[in-house]
């Protein structure tokens, strides 16, 4: 028996919108820790790891570990039927081949339940090693989204370089080149508007902009984004989910042949 009641149902709606472009089908894993997902895109270039901790739910019952295979576009279709202020409850019985999403309006005058068929998905979990990153950049998520969108109108790849000067996003294409430098800026009115760069050593890596743009679908989940870079490792683009957990996107670099 599984019953997870999330008062801020809009978070789950935003999570689905953030990952459904990258991943078609995925197993949601439910355990005492929380509601989680790990999945790669079909070409195995990007990986998404989601965690919504059990403490973040108003009610969290998960009698035994359960893995539920879902088509994310179908799940998104159902969650779009929930109002932004609705409370969402996810329910499943042991051994059942369906999951139920219950939507309650804030004043309890409308209650809807949507039952979705589950699917069998063969998926392997990858071990993500704890890494010491050479550089960690925290910046406003909207600013990062803007940069990715702007650069993708010029080129297909972005070179992200972190030096003492700041973080530089560069691209090149048929029509020309573009460089955007963001300097560390802690003197802002609100902490979420700051750009903070922690650098152990300079790092420069190349990535496909198509995936970066897809990650920025998570922008509505968090005011800030954290980009962690090490040479020879996938970049981590992390959006924290208020008091509950995170979505982390890992993207494999492009390497000189």
């Amino acid at each position: 028996m599984l019953e997870l009641r999330l008062v801020q149902g809009s978070l789950l709606k935003k999570v689905l919108e953030a990952i459904r472009e990258l991943v078609n089908d995925a197993n949601f894993d439910c355990s005492a820790t929380g509601f989680s997902l790990q999945a790669m895109d079909s070409s195995h270039v990007a990986l998404v790891a989601l965690l919504l901790r059990s403490e973040g739910f108003e009610h969290y019952r998960c009698d035994r570990n359960l893995s539920m295979g879902m088509n994310l576009n179908n799940m998104a279709k159902m969650l779009r039927c929930a109002g932004n202020d609705d409370i969402i409850t996810i329910k499943a019985d042991d051994g059942s081949d369906t999951v139920t999403f219950m939507f309650e309006s804030p004043n309890q005058d409308k209650i809807a339940d949507f039952e979705m068929k589950l699917m069998d998905i063969d998926s392997e979990h990858l071990g993500i090693p704890d890494a010491e990153y050479h550089a960690i950049v925290r910046m406003p998520s909207a600013e990062f989204a803007r940069i990715c969108k702007d650069l993708s109108s010029i080129g297909d790849t972005v070179v992200i370089s972190v030096t003492k000067e700041g973080v530089k996003f560069s691209t090149a294409g048929d029509i020309g080149t573009a460089n955007i430098v963001c300097r560390q800026n802690k003197t802002v009115d609100k902490p979420e508007e700051a750009t903070v760069i922690e650098m152990q050593e300079p790092v420069s890596l190349t990535f496909a902009l198509r995936y970066m743009n897809s990650f920025t679908k998570a922008t509505p989940l968090s005011e800030t984004v954290t980009i962690s870079l090490s040479s020879e490792l996938p970049v981590v683009v992390e959006y924290k989910i208020a008091d509950m957990g995170y979505i982390r996107f890992y993207l494999a670099p492009k390497i000189e042949e």
Binding site: E124, L126, G127, P129, A252
Partner: peptide
Amino acid sequence: GCKQTTITKFFGRL
């Protein structure tokens, strides 16, 4: 040219 690597090159299967 640059070659796209995959996640499985870096993270092992459990």
